[in-house]
Simulated scan of single mutants.
Amino acid sequence: MISPRTAKKIILGSAPRRAVTKVSLEAAFMRVSARDVRARVDGPEFDRATMDGFAIRSSDTAVIPAVLKCTQAIPAGHIPKKSLKKGECAKVATGAMLPGGADSVVMKEEAEFLLSGPVTLRRRIAPYENIAFRAQDLKKGGIVLRKGDILNAAKIGLLSSQGAKDVAVYRAPRVAILSTGDEIAEPGEKKKKGQVWNASASMLKFAVRRWRLAPDYLGIARDDPGQIFKKIRQGLKSDIFIITGAVSIGDLDLVPGALKRSGAAVGFHKVAIRPGKPLLFAVKRGCLIFGLPGNPVSSLVSFLLFVAPLINSMLGYRKGDLIEKGFLAKGVYNKSDRLSLFPGILKYKGGRIIVRPVKYSGSADLAAVSGADVLFMVDKHKDLSKGSAVEFFRISV
């Protein structure tokens, strides 16, 4: 049995080198950029108005009131017909290209004008009012996106403004999930006496979708060596293969044997953690295999502590870990000889994160965990008092 720290080190050390792929901007949201991207054009590409109004030569307002002749109207997206001469102005829309000779824009509200006829200005206008100049935000060849940046809505918008239709990101891992055991039935099915509905698979499928991945669910393999082996061979086509149940040392815990038969190399089996002790990790030709305990809370703990950091790492997120720190609202005693995790609810008080433990009966108590915000960690045989610092990770994966 190894420590959680050692287990995580083995897992992350087994991850393959990140592969790079191009995806459309439509599919790029919250992915991680794999390369620097440089500007194809200046931003903006031309001097433009930032207000609806009139483009003028500021020198024409040296004497007030100034009466100017409006010689053209320039909507956004259109090219000026001619440059301004002395005593002339042009009606412009927000975003419109400025005509030659113009060095300022007067807001529509500050001008006196009729539908046709002269435009009267009653204050001196300084140069460069209400103008966005070419390349003032971004120069051609400048960095638009850096390697490692997360593609949020603003960054995708910036790429779109540069005419990009796709972007290089780290390839998303293919994830497969397999449930095992005669004792489970799929939700919606009629279950036999003694069976329970399969909570772990549903929970893990949606946990994986946090990264906008679409896991391949392989269904339930019954307690039959041949059936489990067949399903495992199918799952080995993925990059990350998650198996729930049948990983301990009981007579029907058939997964370890089936993995060895398939040629997978077991990295470790059993971690000093509660819940989640039976966790198994193996590798077969680039497929990283997790054998998670069958109890739902044990599966969730194992996923959050060990699978989630791997997915983060493979997708290129700089922060592979999901662990945060807070302070206990009341004391907790861990009588176990293993690092233990307990559900808690978060509160914020005086700028501090407070973790309030909730009533919890063990690794099958999904009701308690579903009503909690976090799982917090307490070292073996540790008696923590109110106000003690604890590490936790959020359940809302």
Rank of each mutant, 00 (worst) to 15 (best):
P309Q: 04
G77V: 09
R261E: 14
E112I: 13
F290S: 03
D182T: 06
S3R: 14
G53Y: 07
L346I: 14
F268C: 05
V105A: 09
V37D: 05
G77L: 08
L366A: 13
F393Q: 08
F376L: 02
G267T: 07
L159A: 11
L280W: 03
K237P: 01
P343T: 05
V369W: 04
M203K: 05
L341Q: 00
L121N: 08
P225A: 09
V390Q: 04
A272V: 03
A308Q: 14
T71E: 13
V355C: 10
L213T: 12
K260I: 02
V255E: 03
D60H: 07
V92F: 12
I150L: 11
L158G: 02
A199P: 00
D47W: 11
A135M: 10
L145G: 06
L328H: 07
D149T: 04
L341P: 00
G148T: 07
A308T: 00
V301Y: 00
R356A: 15
L322A: 13
G194P: 05
V397E: 14
G87Y: 07
S202F: 01
L341N: 00
G362T: 02
I56P: 10
M107C: 12
G294I: 00
V37C: 04
F206Y: 13
V301T: 13
G219D: 08
G320R: 14
A7G: 14
V41Q: 12
R174T: 14
G181S: 06
R122M: 12
I56F: 12
K231V: 01
S298H: 01
R122L: 09
A185Y: 05
Y170D: 07
H381S: 09
S238F: 03
S3M: 12
G87M: 10
L204S: 03
R124K: 15
L68V: 04
V374K: 09
I79N: 12
K155H: 08
K191Y: 02
D103E: 09
S385G: 12
D47T: 03
T120F: 02
L252K: 15
V105F: 09
I10G: 03
G371S: 14
A39K: 08
G291P: 02
R352L: 14
F290A: 05
P343R: 10
G142R: 10
A154H: 11
I273Q: 02
G142Y: 05
I354E: 11
R122F: 15
A221Q: 05
R171P: 01
V144I: 15
I10K: 12
I2E: 10
Y170E: 08
I249L: 11
I228S: 04
R233I: 03
I232Q: 08
L159W: 11
S248H: 01
I240S: 06
I249C: 07
D166G: 08
Y360N: 04
G350L: 10
G117T: 12
I2H: 11
A96P: 04
K347C: 02
V283F: 05
L305P: 00
L114F: 10
I243T: 01
F392W: 08
G87D: 09
D373H: 13
P173T: 08
R318P: 01
I311D: 04
I74G: 06
R123L: 05
L288D: 03
I323Y: 08
I177M: 05
G276Q: 07
I125M: 15
G331T: 01
P99Y: 06
I395V: 15
G53A: 11
E183P: 09
R134H: 11
D216N: 13
S116E: 15
V307H: 01
V20H: 06
G43N: 10
A15H: 06
V175C: 08
L310I: 01
